[in-house]
């Protein structure tokens, strides 16, 4: 006998699902902005003239990339109490996602800055721009455009990574729909809805990254 889909349990849980979705979006926004800014700062260290700073930054990237973000979440949530610190589940998850993904973003930004022609910096300095303006007005816009395809991928990845925080009891989207399944066993219905929801979110994030990239490309074309 075939399985009959029944959407009523999903409708009945819609309130809980929406509040879970709101928390997922909150985790995503805080952790993706945090990871991107940290990645941008870290990339400057990787390109620094000082070998010790480069060493620290490269060491950080290697350390972070060689362990799963879930392990970091556990480490923060269950490990810090040993030191007398009790971070909440929400912030343990967010901090782990920022630390983990920043490492990948550092590498993306490093490559992007390295690909900006050396002459650009020399020209800016010879025009009398100070180092900050050179960075802000000349190097950053060009590097950002080159970084955006990679960043967009990681942002989409981070949308999905928000579900990992459910392991620490955060009531985000994945937590809510798997909890509902535990009650009513409507696995197919909830997974279909959840899959489509994640697809819509990641598609939206990818679309925003593409639009931003295109806007920067137009700016660069005008400048030529």
């Amino acid at each position: 006998m075939a399985y009959r889909l029944d959407w009523l349990p999903v409708l009945q849980a819609s309130q809980a699902l929406l509040s879970g979705l709101a928390i997922s979006l909150e985790i995503f926004l805080i952790s993706s902005i945090g990871a991107t800014l940290l990645g941008l700062g870290g990339a400057s260290l990787m390109l620094s003239r000082h070998a010790s700073l480069r060493f620290v930054a490269t060491g950080y990237v290697e350390l972070m990339r060689n362990s799963p973000s879930l392990v970091k979440m556990y480490f923060i949530y269950f490990g810090f109490p040993v030191l007398g610190l009790f971070p909440t589940a929400f912030w343990s998850g967010v901090i782990a996602l920022v630390l983990h993904n920043a490492a990948y973003m550092m590498d993306i930004f490093r490559a992007a800055f390295a690909s900006v022609a050396r002459g650009q910096r020399e020209a800016a300095i010879s025009l009398g721009l100070d180092p900050f303006l050179t960075y802000r007005k000349v190097l950053l816009p060009q590097a950002l455009r080159r970084a955006l395809p990679g960043l967009g991928n990681y942002w989409a990845e981070m949308v999905k990574d928000t579900s990992l925080t459910s392991a620490l009891s955060v009531r985000e989207f994945y937590f809510v729909f798997t909890s509902q399944i535990a009650l009513n066993m409507r696995t197919y219905e909830f997974f279909l809805v959840a899959g489509l929801t994640y697809l819509l979110l990641t598609s939206a994030v990818a679309a925003i990254a593409r639009l931003w990239e295109r806007a920067l490309a137009r700016g660069e074309a005008r400048a030529r």
């Binding site: 849980a13 459910s166 009891s169 937590f175 798997t178 909890s179 509902q180 535990a182 009650l183 009513n184």
Partner: peptide, 11 residues
Amino acid sequence: VLTRQGADLEQ
């Protein structure tokens, strides 16, 4: 109260 995840237990 800490427990295993699930709306069944919450109920």
